[in-house]
Design a binder for these strands. Structure first.
Lengths: 145, 145
DNA sequence: TTGTAATCAGACAAATTTGTCTGATTTATG
DNA sequence: CATAAATCAGACAAATTTGTCTGATTACAA
């Protein structure tokens, strides 16, 4: 199913991108989100609540409430979201799961994987929600299921 | 916990490396394996049985039985093991989980991730159990917990 | 042939992740 | 003030992954 991030993290990333595509000042409801993304309604609620606790989104209750970005889209990186949801395990853990790898008893893939992991890291920290929102408004990109 | 492979897959890779380090012709028992790796005894049994069903290991019952590689270590790649355990999801799925990514509605990370995924793929297909066994006999490498 | 040490098979249990339900609270509007 | 529409909170359920137990089968050796 999911390959690198947990499913919850994929949902969070997709949701954040959707919200970032909307005009600044508008609120996005869970109902609207789950109408456009393939995310279960109540699960979506939980994920968005979590993102607002982490300071990535803000929320407003009530009739015209919903969720919005807490900061400008260009200031939120994908890594911010991944860290908020999945934590930072992938920065440090051995790809083969060897417990002593990294403290002087490196596994045979350690260096090679380290280079690739750093590239993934750079990809996540350099891409902002602003970038994604812009790209995915072009033809050929689609957020829909 | 685990970052790229499932825990079961990590166990499988570690076990295969351990077995590959042993002299050709010797059998490795589950007991010995779990004495050296941090893998639960019965879970280990299941994983090794699975690897023999997939043709990566062979097994022998009885007093001096155990498991051994079905082919020379230099002919078994890490990808063989990953595919046998986790399947091939990571070859194709979108890193952000967008369902239409890859059929003409690519996500904004598609190309960039595609390059990195290919590098991971190359790493896994180029490294054989023979390579790992050799490397991890050198000082500075350790398989122990 | 009997005992021992191993894999094998399948049911079961625990833990984690994912998904659902219900009701409370908040905000805007008639 | 009453109603509607939204988030919020927490318990619960389902699914998946991880781990455990028991007994059957097999192979070797005394």
């Amino acid at each position: 199913m999911s390959i690198f991030f947990s499913r919850q993290c994929e949902y969070a990333l997709q949701s954040a991108i959707y919200i970032a595509k909307k005009p600044v000042g508008e609120w996005t409801t869970v109902k609207e989100l789950t109408g456009h993304l393939n995310v279960p309604y109540h699960f979506s609620g939980k994920i968005l609540q979590n993102l607002s606790r982490k300071g990535i989104l803000v929320s407003m209750k009530g009739t015209h409430g919903g969720f919005a970005l807490a900061k400008p889209a260009k200031e939120v990186t994908l890594l911010d979201i991944v860290d908020a949801v999945d934590g930072s395990a992938f920065h440090k853990n051995c790809i083969l799961g060897f417990p002593r790898c990294g403290d002087g008893h490196e596994c045979s893939l350690h260096d090679q994987w380290g280079i690739l992991r750093e590239k993934i890291y750079q990809m996540l920290i350099k891409k902002t929600l602003g970038d994604l929102a812009r790209d995915m408004n072009k033809p050929g990109y689609s957020i829909l299921p």
